[in-house]
């Protein structure tokens, strides 16, 4: 456990010096919050009251994309960066276990993704209240809250799993980044479903998505863990 936190703090320290990561972790969430706020602000007067709630729901969906894209840059760099700098061998020469290394590398990007998503969500609500004076009734329903709070960790876990798997095989950061972006797709599925139904989401939908993500993450993490054995890292990763 202690070694995992040692890894975490080292990675975050490194990340703060990486512009691409800072962009993904700070600029993108702010952009999303801005877009979401703009959307609900525009819908404040026009149309019937139902439309206002629908716009609010669409805005909420943005916060299901964030947990997928925030960790991408961090996760890519935390793997490809080690490869490019040739730092894996000294790291693997320490008594850290394969498991600690894997968990550390995963949490490095999962934790900020979750925290920043929830933070952005809070910021969005705060700014909306400031601008509109209130949150429309029936907008913040239990299914939405369940989605934002329950699905966020699963979405980022899935995204990070895919990215770790891809990065362990990729030769450069750009390729890893592009491939890993495909992890956004599963996150888009609920968005598409929600937007076609144009209604308030149900708890059932959230639960189904949660199970799908759980299974998907388990599969991805299973293969990622197999890639993360010392022997593999030293002799197969290029």
């Amino acid at each position: 456990m202690r070694r995992i936190s040692v890894i975490l703090f080292k990675e975050w320290k490194e990340s703060l010096r990486n512009k691409m990561i800072l962009f993904g972790a700070i600029f993108l969430p702010l952009l999303m919050v801005g877009a979401a706020v703009a959307m609900v602000y525009q819908g404040r007067t026009s149309g019937p009251p139902g439309a206002e709630v629908a716009l609010f729901n669409t805005a909420l969906m943005y916060f299901l994309i964030l947990p997928v894209i925030i960790p991408l840059a961090i996760a890519v760099y935390s793997i490809v960066g080690e490869k490019e700098q040739g730092t894996l061998e000294p790291l693997l020469a320490t008594p850290i276990s394969d498991w600690e290394l894997f968990v550390g590398k995963a949490l490095v990007s999962v934790l900020p993704a979750v925290v920043l998503t929830w933070g952005s969500f809070g910021l969005f609500l705060g700014v909306s209240v400031a601008l509109l004076g209130r949150i429309p009734p029936h907008a913040l329903t239990a299914p939405w809250l369940a989605a934002v709070f329950g699905l966020t960790p699963l979405l980022s876990l899935f995204s990070v799993g895919v990215t770790m798997l891809v990065s362990s095989r990729a030769t450069d950061a750009r390729a890893a980044y592009e491939f890993s972006s495909l992890a956004v797709l599963p996150a888009l599925v609920p968005l598409i479903i929600y937007s076609t139904r144009k209604t308030i989401v149900s708890l059932g939908l959230v639960a189904v998505e949660g199970v799908v993500l759980l299974v998907g993450s388990a599969v991805v993490l299973y293969f990622a863990i197999r890639m993360f054995r010392r022997e593999q890292i030293l002799t197969r990763w290029k």
Binding site: K10, E14, R17, Q85, G86, T87, L88, E89, P90, A93
Partner: peptide, 9 residues
């Protein structure tokens, strides 16, 4: 190790 492999950042 053969190469220093330091964390440059």
């Amino acid at each position: 190790t053969e190469t220093p492999g330091l964390y440059k950042r």
